[in-house]
């Protein structure tokens, strides 16, 4: 297999805080980079178009709680990275580099920038999700100190079963925020209250009740949402309650074999393998859960 490694271009490379005005260029680079690496491995691209990617970057670069950074080479934007800093554990991504200048240190520089930012914000831990087929990104993150935590299966489809006995799913309301945060703390050791509050406001969040109390919630059943439950039956109830999952799909920890088999037996399919990685504070969750594409 041919291998190409470009000369480092660190001397001419600069980074600066991203602004919403950078979103069209960063969106184009994001789409080009993701579609190129996915096509090389015969997987579908995570983003449908450059326009959708630009809209996504606009949201990330203008929403409080997100830190965006762009890398410039001779004044031209060649990549970007984002740090979600809404909770004590922070998430990285998307990080993308213009395919014409890849393998020359731009990605590492962008990663070092957000890790420095996370340190300055006193993050207890930093996490990310990478495409498992992407050897270079795995190597970059591992060399920076990230540990592999969970193999993930991206899952999409329409579930055959539409409800689980004893579990009731309904849209989340602001009154559900405290019990959901308490549940997250029990399962993960920290809460993602700011993210969840935003999703409740947008109307994407769901809760599942069993025995008269909240036993699970999802900020959004899809690529960009996270889900936390006490047990697999709560997670099954949430997954069964919708027609499909947002974006490329949900991210199921593959070691949850009971859930993986349940998904496969109920008409869902695995679309691609991914990996959850972390640096700093990490503890195995005590419950059933789905990370978002950030963490």
């Amino acid at each position: 297999m041919a291998s190409h490694r470009a000369a480092p271009i660190q001397a001419a490379l600069t980074t600066r805080r991203a602004t919403p005005e950078d979103a069209p260029v960063c969106g184009r680079i994001c789409y080009d980079a993701f579609s190129a690496i996915s096509a090389q491995h015969n997987f579908p691209c995570d983003l449908p178009s450059a326009e959708v990617a630009a809209g996504f970057m606009t949201m990330l670069f203008s929403t409080p709680g997100f830190y965006g950074v762009v890398a410039e080479l001779d004044g031209r934007i060649v990549g970007s990275n984002v740090l979600e800093e809404r909770s004590i554990v922070m998430g990285v991504g998307p990080i993308t580099v213009d395919p014409t200048v890849q393998n020359a240190g731009v990605g590492r520089r962008l990663m070092l920038d957000v890790l420095q930012r996370a340190r300055s914000q006193h993050a207890a831990g930093v996490r990310l999700v990478q495409a498992a087929f992407h050897n270079r990104s795995l190597s970059l993150y591992a060399s920076l100190g990230f540990d592999v935590r969970e193999p993930l299966s991206c899952i999409q489809g329409k579930p055959r079963q539409r409800s689980i006995a004893g579990c009731a799913v309904r849209p989340a309301t602001p009154a559900d925020l405290d019990p959901c945060n308490a549940l997250s703390h029990r399962v993960h050791g920290f809460d993602r209250g700011a993210d969840l509050a935003h999703c409740i406001e947008r109307g994407t969040a769901l809760v599942v009740e069993r025995g008269g109390r909240i036993t699970g919630y999802s900020s959004h059943l899809g690529f960009f949402g996270h889900t936390t439950c006490e047990a697999n039956q709560d997670l099954q109830a949430l997954l069964a309650s919708v027609d499909s999952y947002g974006g490329p799909g949900i991210l199921l920890p593959s070691r949850n074999t009971e859930m993986l088999r349940w998904c496969l037996a109920h008409g869902l399919r695995v679309t691609q393998p991914m990996t959850l990685m972390s640096m700093g504070l990490y503890n195995d969750p005590r419950g059933a859960w789905l990370p978002s594409i950030t963490f």
Binding site: I88, H122, A123, A124, G125, F190, G193, G280, L281
Partner: peptide, 17 residues
């Protein structure tokens, strides 16, 4: 021993420990 602190009154005041 690794962990974190979050202020009750000002949740944005959080620190790794």
């Amino acid at each position: 021993v690794e962990g974190y602190y979050v202020s009750k009154r000002f949740p944005e005041n959080r620190q790794n420990l």
